[in-house]
Design a binder for these strands. Structure first.
Length: 590
RNA sequence: GGUCCCGUAGCUCAGUUGGAUAGAGCAACAGCCUUCUAAGCUGUGGGUCGUUGGUUCGAGUCCAACCGGGAUCGCCA
């Protein structure tokens, strides 16, 4: 049990037995005590004033005294205005440390959730390499999946690959026209970058053709519809759908290049998937459900044959779910894949990590599934995240003004190397270990930067300034870990924790450790890794404060030294585990 | 125009279901390495929490209106 939960239970019991006041856990206001006052937790007594018929100060005094008497959890108290500051007993903190040891999450107890969650993330298009926005998506999705696992859910990570459509044909047609048979092997280019190059080439050609048509006196809008290369791409899509062998062959070849490229980016990012879905397989799904919905009267057909749903009563608009020619739209496919996911795994919840520009789409999807009475409908959750902006403005992959994911990762690696070399603390490390360290530090800086922010907010990314290695960063936490490991290489931590009375700095460290379960719960409930990132920062800061003031290895008193080693080891292990949920590895030395 | 998201220090961000004098980091300035890793620690300066009302013992947090930024409302995905 966490200290707060223990205290809450004690207060409820005391209020009931000594004051005949029945309260529920939710009614009590318990907070961390303001650092300016002595105490660990604070009970806000204003809500009790009416029931006790006393002034706030008197209420606080009465309750404080009763709590101290009841058992040895609360050692002392003080009252400031209507706030009852409670100090828990030193012996309690030590026994708590002994209980949680290297795994503070054990305070949660193990309860099987028997709940299956699918987290779909990444979902790239196969016409261009991953960029900064995908990086945020991938890190979020992977981390949320790991967090849910740590909180007792059964998790399936899924990737729905958009391998079909006009955008793919654009790359294909440009490669046919301008490629001269270029391959990743012949060019030495990563496959996804090679294909992306032709996507950009398509756009350049397209714009040139449009300009030509406009010069010939055609309206811009019309020109954009009749540019020859666009017509060629559209024709290719038709041939693709008809199963034209030459088109399919080219499609498969270019896709295989892209997949090889993606695999290498995913692997470097440290993300993985349990199940891949391909839009080329799923794009016709969902039509049966449309038919079912028509029968049930959830959908209706317009005279031209197109099928719609009217969501105006739900505050939305009418929405097309099937084209007049009977082909699927985006929504049709998503209805179908939702059904497929459920059929395959019997999932209870389905998390979609997709940018916030699709808020509307997922609101509609969820509503449709609810109206169709699907058992998984309420479990659909759109993990919506904000765009990543650059100082120069929006990223446009067509125009090639993007921060490429591979370039970014390499840049992080190089920056980490430069920084490490400046500090010159890596004596005795070999070339391979060093490069592994740079990678670890660079990726930590990148991942922490992305994950410490509330997903919902759009974020500004300044390649020159954003990513730092000092202050609120991944490397700062890694550094704290490495320092502790350095001590533990010299003297091992004891298996059991000596029962001494901790000083204020030590208590603060234990208190922070004990807050990890709350951070995990917040992260899991909110599908948001940032509470764990902030916990880690706070943990590292708290430990560094202690470390700066008190000796560990050089502590003369043997019991105290053993206690501090045990404490330091607990901090290191919990930091390592928590950063692991963010996809961040920790070095033994840096 | 309808709907949704965001607005907190010069910059990047925290701020639990309303609680004490609104917190970190970066940047600026001043200290701390003959002692366990200074990628660290300590201190100083920096705020009409977009604006105006409302709800109450109490509002950055809840409600309303407005201002500013963004997204979305395609037989694109």
């Amino acid at each position: 049990m966490t200290p707060e939960a223990a205290l809450r239970a004690l207060i409820i019991d005391t209020l009931s037995k000594d004051f005949q006041i029945e309260t529920s856990a939710a009614d009590l206001r318990i907070e961390r005590t303001n650092p300016d006052f002595p105490g660990d937790f604070t009970l806000v007594v204003f809500p009790l004033v009416k029931a006790l018929k006393r002034s706030p100060e008197q209420c606080a005094e009465l309750v404080g005294e009763a709590l101290c008497k009841r058992n040895d959890l609360v050692a002392s108290f003080n009252v400031v205005k209507g706030f009852l500051n409670l100090e828990l007993a030193g012996s309690y903190w030590v026994s708590l440390l002994q209980t949680m040891g290297a795994n503070a999450l054990s305070l949660l107890g193990s309860k099987p959730r028997n709940t299956k969650v699918m987290v779909e993330y990444s979902s790239p298009n196969t016409n261009k390499p991953l960029h900064l926005g995908h990086v945020r998506n991938n890190l979020l999705g992977w981390s949320v999946a790991e967090i849910l696992k740590a909180d007792g859910y059964e998790v399936i990570k899924a990737n729905l690959i958009n391998d079909r459509g006009i955008h793919i044909c654009k790359s294909m047609i440009a490669w046919e026209r301008f490629g001269n048979g270029e391959t990743p092997e012949s060019s030495g280019m990563k496959g996804d970058h090679l294909v992306g190059k032709y996507y950009v080439a398509f756009d350049a050609q397209f714009r040139a053709e449009v300009a030509e048509l406009v010069a010939a006196g055609i309206e811009k809008e019309a020109a954009e519809k009749q540019a020859p290369i666009l017509l060629a791409a559209q024709d290719m899509l038709r041939r693709w759908e008809q199963g034209d062998e030459a088109v399919l062959k080219l499609w498969k070849t270019m896709n295989s290049w892209v997949y090889a490229g993606f695999e290498s980016s995913y692997s470097r990012l440290g993300v993985d998937f349990d199940r891949y879905y391909y839009e080329s397989n799923t794009y016709t799904l969902g039509k049966d459900i449309i038919a079912e919905g028509l029968e049930k009267g959830v959908f209706y057909r317009k005279p031209d044959g197109s099928v719609w749903i009217d969501l105006r009563e739900d505050g939305l608009d009418e929405k097309l779910v099937l084209r007049s020619d009977g082909t699927s739209v985006y929504m049709t496919q998503d209805i179908g894949t939702a059904e497929l996911k459920y059929a395959e795994y019997g999932i209870d919840r389905s998390v979609y990590v997709v940018g916030n520009e699709q808020d509307y789409h997922f609101k509609v999807l969820r509503l449709i599934m609810q109206k169709l009475g699907r058992p998984y409908a309420d479990g659909i959750f759109h993990l919506s995240y904000g765009m990543v902006d650059l100082p120069s403005g929006k990223m446009k992959s067509r125009e090639g003004t993007v921060v490429d994911a591979d370039d970014l990762m390499q840049e992080m690696h190089d920056t980490a190397r430069r920084k490490t070399e400046e500090l010159g603390k890596t004596e005795g490390m070999t070339g391979e270990a060093l490069s592994g360290l740079y990678e670890m530090l660079g990726m930590a800086a990148l991942k922490f930067f992305m994950l410490k922010v509330d997903p919902q907010k759009r974020m500004l990314f300044n390649p020159q300034e954003s990513i730092d290695f000092q202050g609120d960063t991944g490397p700062f936490i890694q550094y704290t870990y490495a320092r502790i490991r350095s001590m533990l290489r010299q003297t091992q931590a004891p298996d059991t924790c000596p029962a001494i009375l901790p000083n204020e700095a030590e208590r603060a460290v234990i208190r922070q450790l004990a807050m990890l379960p709350d951070a995990l719960r917040a992260a899991s409930d909110g599908y948001d890794p940032s509470p764990l990132a902030h916990w880690s920062l706070q943990m590292a800061r708290q430990f560094n404060r202690f470390y700066n003031e008190f000796p560990v290895l050089k502590e003369a008193d043997e019991a105290s030294r053993a206690f501090r080693l045990f404490l330091a080891n607990a901090v290191a292990e919990n930091l390592r585990n928590t950063l692991g949920l963010l996809g961040i590895a920790v070095p033994e030395k840096m």
